[in-house]
Nucleic acid binder design. Structure first.
Lengths: 238, 238
DNA sequence: TATATATGACTGACGGGTCAGTCATTATTT
DNA sequence: AAATAATGACTGACCCGTCAGTCATATATA
């Protein structure tokens, strides 16, 4: 009734288990060929683990997060986690990457918007942020990165390259156009696109820290922000 | 972390005094002028523990911070920590309180500045921030609060009441005056003083996360920010 | 089709390291 | 001597990561 030898040896060799190997950040999950129904099950499981991880990590922070909790919340046994992720840290990194990707898609969509005014683009961007970040659990991720970034230089760098640099590039282009066309009162925002994004960050952090003490009128904040950026005394729109 | 549920909201009020085992009185910490060398020694020891704690907590976060490290860095034995603070959580709360106090003094000084222009006041405020927060370990505390705040509602609330609300009140007054006098192009910043502070927060977080990848020209950022707030096209000084 | 065999995804108890908090002992002050 | 302050070895809970074993499903054989 044995023959565990083969399997044991394979595992001993180092790398067995699920196909989605995630060493050195390379191969992402999907082998596009969908032949096996197994494949989709595995992917779904991976997703549910990531979803559970986001909640648990965001609630307790990296160090205090318990993988038992992640497993329980994902509806799997603890050992299963290790079939999908090498260790706690790899899970955390995969979590950040997985949550960041949709953001990039959204941002790219904005970048390629052809012929709308800078102000409209700005408004669209803010609206997108309010809906897709503040309105979802992704806002937790943002705070998580702020909190854990210094202890995960690889993650901070990844986030900088993939999100921050990209986002600022878009904002800078937008601000330059706005400055040229007179929509912005100066090129200040073009030189420091961080100024455009800063209130968004404040909104997220405020939401996480002070929401229950003193809720923030995000919409009003962002409208006021646009007003400041344009330098217009008052601009009431529909 | 200790017992998950219980938590120590209740003890937020009481500070562990220097005396080790008194279940009786509520001896406050500083007996004002006592010539006893003991008293000053105890206070100095307390301070060195807090200083050590700031570094260690800021480096590792609350959960991953080791009290052995705090003790070693403060030059005391671990048991000594418990003569000054009830437990890890009380130490953390005391740390936040102790680091916040000087900030309040500084801010109050600004509030009482009598007759300078709003722009000068703004410049002074930014300079103060750059020097007293970005230039010291207090910037670590700021990130620490962002990171741990959600898990310490008492601290978040304390910080809101003592620092955020106070600071925003000052900023709002400043912005209202600036709007009246025409220094600001609208009352947007007066309605949402967060807009004035947002770039400062960005500067702190950027410093902690991306400084080594892409250092931020804080001075340039703040100058550009003032430019945006005033809505002036270009204001070049020598 | 029915039965036997093989596979590997999944489980969960457990080993082992870590660390907050304690307390008997030592050192210092009064 | 008595009281107070400080020490650091110790304990026990906690949790990450492991791995021998299970079982549902797929494949091979009769």
């Amino acid at each position: 009734m044995r023959s565990a030898g083969a399997s044991a040896r394979a595992k001993a060799a180092g790398e067995a288990s699920v196909r989605s190997r995630d060493k050195s950040g390379k191969s992402l999950i999907p082998s596009p060929s969908k032949r096996s129904p197994r494949r989709s099950t595995a992917e779904a499981r991976r997703q549910s683990i990531l979803a559970a991880a986001l909640t648990v990590f965001a609630t307790h922070g990296f160090a205090a997060a318990r993988l038992d909790d992640v497993a329980a919340r994902a509806g799997v046994a603890k050992g299963t986690l290790y079939l999908y992720f090498r260790d706690k840290e790899a899970l955390f990194e995969a979590l950040v990457r997985s949550a960041v990707s949709p953001l990039l898609q959204h941002m790219s969509k904005l970048a390629t918007s052809p012929e709308i005014s800078p102000l409209q683009a700005l408004e669209a961007f803010f609206a997108l942020f309010a809906k897709e970040v503040l309105g979802t659990e992704r806002k937790l991720l943002l705070r998580l990165i702020v909190a854990e970034g210094p202890r995960f230089p690889a993650i901070a760098e990844f986030y900088y390259r993939e999100v921050v640099a990209h986002g600022l590039r878009i904002m800078r282009a937008l601000a330059e156009r706005a400055a040229r066309e007179g929509a912005f009162s100066s090129d200040a925002a073009a030189r420091f696109p961080q100024l455009i994004v800063a209130p968004l960050l404040v909104a997220v952090l405020w939401d996480g820290l002070f929401a229950r003490i003193d809720p923030l009128d995000v919409d009003g904040l962002l409208r006021a922000h646009r007003q400041v950026l344009t330098g217009k005394p008052e601009k009431d729109a529909p």
